[in-house]
Design a protein around this nucleic acid. Structure first.
Length: 423
RNA sequence: GGAAAGUUGGCAGAGUGGUCGAAUGCGGCGGUCUUGAAAACCGUUGUCUGUAACAGGACCGGGGGUUCGAAUCCCUCACUUUCCGCCA
């Protein structure tokens, strides 16, 4: 959520930056500003009446104590009026505030200065490409074919148990999953992240805190009986650990990592591009979340980006890094890097990680603050990134490393899998 | 699922109608003392809103009500804890 004080004082800048996003409802900005003015003037009126009423009440108390019953009654009769006026004003105020809230939550975060204008993924900037795209044999198979050939991932079985998008990993397939999770967590630990295990069902307040609600309501699985949501990413529970917290400056940077399954309804997705592991309803992911001093957040974003890249290098996967254009960025993000791995068999790039700086957009909702050296409260900056999401990594490992003999496990993973070949 | 008790400032915990934004302790900050530190002692210490600054306003789990006046009384919802039941 944007800060109204910023919008109020920087109206033109806000409009300009929302245009970078190609945001379609620019009129919301002025509507929000007008409502804010309305709210504030109504508040002033209501508060001055409240002040009179408070003073009168105090006086009555004083007179009663002195036993001056009649004088007290006289004031009493008068102060009934305050109540009526206040009631009317406060009802207006409540209405205005409701409207204001409905509108301000529709405004996405403002893109950082480095973010390019653009509408779709076509306009994303390629920052770098790393690694050789391997030349696969003529008869190279896509990962879903390899999964069937070696009997390591069973999509049909998942359909029986749950439905499409819920695969069953079997034998070495399951072990590869576990190896990757452990590898990613160990790497994160080495890089100073604290490992946490968090709930994978969250309440509405948490969904709001990180921006999934109300923006992406329909994308999350919802447990009606208990009014809880299944997490779409560990970002939600991990970041929400700090909801309402007042942090100390010396605590920064706060670095947490968590492995969780993630659940996404992916309503409306279909077609060949969602085949196999490319898009699932349930998948595994190791997530990084940082809370940092506002001055440091872009430095930290670069750091997180290179860390994610180091994982891809260790797995010997060819990848590229994109800086998302305004139009392709998530609602809450100020700047996002996507990491994509080349799928030789599918002849396309697959997104395996997304690293974002949310600046104060999440912390303003979360009310995650710290007391600065100036003695004042400030909102922290939040960042997160996948490191990494498993399914597409698995897809690429299978595809890139296929040989006549079988699938060769990347060296760095062998201590984790306990085997070198899937054959 | 049944029953009971709770929800107050960074934490612990008092407060059952006005002088309560709230005792006290801990913690934090500043100081005295000390070569330095600890201890002790003294002072100070909530958030949001608002103002040029003051003033003013809001906040004792959320919402509503009673009252001139609510942390305190009533209603309602949520959550937490404990006991019983069930159970990995």
């Amino acid at each position: 959520m944007l800060q109204i004080s910023y919008i109020r004082e920087n109206r033109n800048d806000v409009i300009k930056r929302l245009q970078v996003r190609n945001f379609g409802q620019l009129e919301l900005v002025d509507e929000v500003i007008l409502l804010d003015e309305d709210i504030r003037s109504t508040k002033i009126r209501s508060e001055s009446i409240a002040a009179e009423g408070n003073a009168a009440a105090k006086q009555i108390g004083e007179l009663m104590r002195q036993g001056k019953r009649e004088e007290a009654d006289a004031i009493k009769a008068k102060s009934g009026e305050y109540k009526e006026q206040l009631k009317v004003l406060n009802e207006q105020l409540g209405l205005l505030e409701e409207q204001f809230f409905q509108k301000i939550v529709q405004l996405p975060n403002l893109p950082y200065k480095d973010v390019a204008e653009g509408k779709t993924a076509e306009d994303n900037e390629i920052i770098l490409e790393q690694g050789e795209k391997p030349v696969l044999p003529e008869n190279a198979l896509a990962h879903w074919e390899l999964a069937a050939k070696y009997d390591i991932i069973d999509f049909e079985l998942g359909v029986k148990v749950s439905g499409a998008g819920f695969p069953v990993y079997k034998g070495k397939g399951a072990k590869l999953q576990r190896a990757l999770i452990n590898f990613f967590l160990d790497q994160a630990t080495e890089n100073g992240y604290r490992e946490v295990q968090v709930p994978i069902l969250i309440n509405g307040d948490s969904g709001f805190g990180t921006g999934q609600l109300p923006d992406k309501e329909g994308q999350m699985y919802y447990v009606t009986a208990d009014d809880l949501y299944l997490i779409p990413t560990a970002e939600v529970p991990v970041t929400n650990m700090y909801r309402g917290e007042i942090l100390k400056e010396e605590d920064f940077p706060i670095k947490n990592t968590a492995y969780t399954p993630c659940f996404r309804r992916e309503a409306g997705s279909y077609g060949s591009h969602v085949r196999g592991l490319n898009r699932l309803h349930q998948f595994d992911k190791v997530e990084l979340v940082q809370l940092v001093h506002p001055e440091k957040s872009y430095e930290v974003l670069e750091e997180m980006s290179s860390y994610v890249q180091s994982l891809l290098q260790k797995l010997q996967l060819p990848y590229r890094v994109l800086r998302l254009c305004g139009g392709d960025m998530g609602f809450a993000s100020a700047m996002t890097y996507d990491m994509e791995v080349w799928s030789g068999a599918q002849q396309r790039w697959l997104e395996v990680s997304s690293v974002s700086n949310f600046e104060t957009f999440q912390s303003n909702r979360l009310k995650a603050r710290f007391k600065g050296q100036d003695g004042k409260m400030h909102l922290v900056h939040t960042l997160n990134g996948s490191a990494l999401a498993l399914p597409r990594i698995v897809a690429c490992i299978l595809e890139e490393n296929q040989t006549d003999r079988g699938i060769k496990i990347p060296n760095i993973l062998v201590p984790y899998t306990g085997f070198e070949w899937i054959d």
